[in-house]
């Protein structure tokens, strides 16, 4: 099951590597190896068998999802600390697999975001926009925290389009002006749009394989789409288009891979739609009026809290019972 998830992530990972360079790959390697080590240690400390819990690959999925949400040019200790927070604090301290109320990858992301805001907002430019080539050497240099000259860095890093959009809207610029920046490319958001489409392909594959249910991705995308469409209709000059919201940032990854984590999601069919739609709406709220450029992690964590309530009120009608 988890193997299918990893396979479905593969196209997205490859496109990300192509767009944002080696950093993606480094993040994954560091996060996965740290997470595996942390998992083994915790299982040992808790007196649980190690092999069955490692081979079910759920910890690998957590680590990969975390790595994919991190900035592609992060120093090594970002994925390292993140993986430890995810596995030790968000998962095992709550009772391990199946018992954690919050999505471990998103908890780790949120902690990193709050603790290291500077390191967490510097992203590599998509390869087509880099004025100085990033290359393996520079990526490695960033990784070990030996930053090259500022001038060089500026050639291949920038804020994410979401961040950029937010900052500029805050300066009372209108969408038309903002979108002239090269960061947005010719279609939706340069580079990101292809990553999103690759994740979308993997996600649809998972629905087809019945690894995930259709309710969560659909609910999340519908929730985000409808609220962003509403504001776009009201004022297209200060509200980015729904497509920008859907293909920008971590929306697609969240819809198909993060919100669908069964442990922390609602379990009833109706509940899943409500749960996901609320996440979608909250992503919009945080992106638009919140303090952070992207709201996926906080939206997921907040709605995770509402899951027991949603589950309680969305029980299906049992055979023979009246509604």
């Amino acid at each position: 099951m988890m193997l299918w998830v990893l396979m479905a992530l593969l196209p997205g990972i490859l496109v990300m590597c192509w767009q944002f360079g080696y950093g993606v790959f480094f993040n994954i390697v560091i996060a996965v190896s740290t997470a595996l080590l942390a998992e083994a240690c915790m299982l040992h400390l808790r007196g649980r068998p190690i092999a069955p819990f490692i081979t079910d690959l759920s910890v690998v999925v957590t680590a990969v999802l975390l790595a994919l949400s991190l900035p592609t040019l992060a120093p090594w200790w970002i994925p390292f600390i993140g993986a430890i927070i995810a596995v030790v604090f968000a998962k095992h301290l709550y009772g391990g697999l199946g018992y954690n109320p919050f999505n471990p990858a998103m908890v780790a992301f949120a902690v990193l975001m709050v603790s290291f805001p500077k390191d967490m907002t510097v992203w590599a430019l998509p390869s087509s926009l880099q004025t100085n080539e990033l290359g393996l050497a520079n990526a490695l240099a960033v990784l070990i925290d030996q930053l090259p000259s500022q001038e060089l860095i500026d050639g291949f890093t920038a804020a994410t389009p979401l961040d950029h959009m937010k900052t500029r809207l805050g300066l009372n610029e209108v969408i038309g002006e903002i979108r002239t920046a090269p960061l947005f490319g010719s279609w939706v958001v340069a580079g990101w749009e292809w990553v999103a489409i690759a994740y979308l392909c993997g996600g649809v594959f998972l629905i087809y394989k019945k690894v995930i249910s259709w309710q969560i991705p659909t609910g999340l995308l519908a929730g985000l789409f409808s609220i962003s469409f509403l504001f776009y209709l009201l004022d297209p000059s200060t509200s980015p288009s729904p497509l920008f919201h859907l293909l920008g940032g971590g929306t697609i990854l969240a819809a198909f891979f993060i919100a669908t984590d069964p442990v922390t999601a609602s379990t009833t069919n109706k509940g899943r739609i409500i749960y996901a739609a609320l996440i979608g709406a909250l992503i919009y709220v945080i992106r638009t009026w919140g303090g952070y450029p992207d709201g996926v992690a906080f939206a997921v964590i907040l709605i995770n809290m509402a899951v027991p309530l949603i589950d309680h009120y969305t029980q299906p009608r049992v055979y023979g019972h009246k509604k």
């Binding site: 099951m1 069964p262 442990v263 299906p316």
Partner: peptide
């Protein structure tokens, strides 16, 4: 097979002919 922890995937609920929530 050795039982692993429930991951709340909900497959049981979609298979239940009485429309119960076995996981809960």
């Amino acid at each position: 097979k050795k039982a692993m922890p429930c991951i709340r995937c909900g497959l049981c609920a979609s298979a239940c002919p009485a429309n119960l929530l076995p996981q809960q």
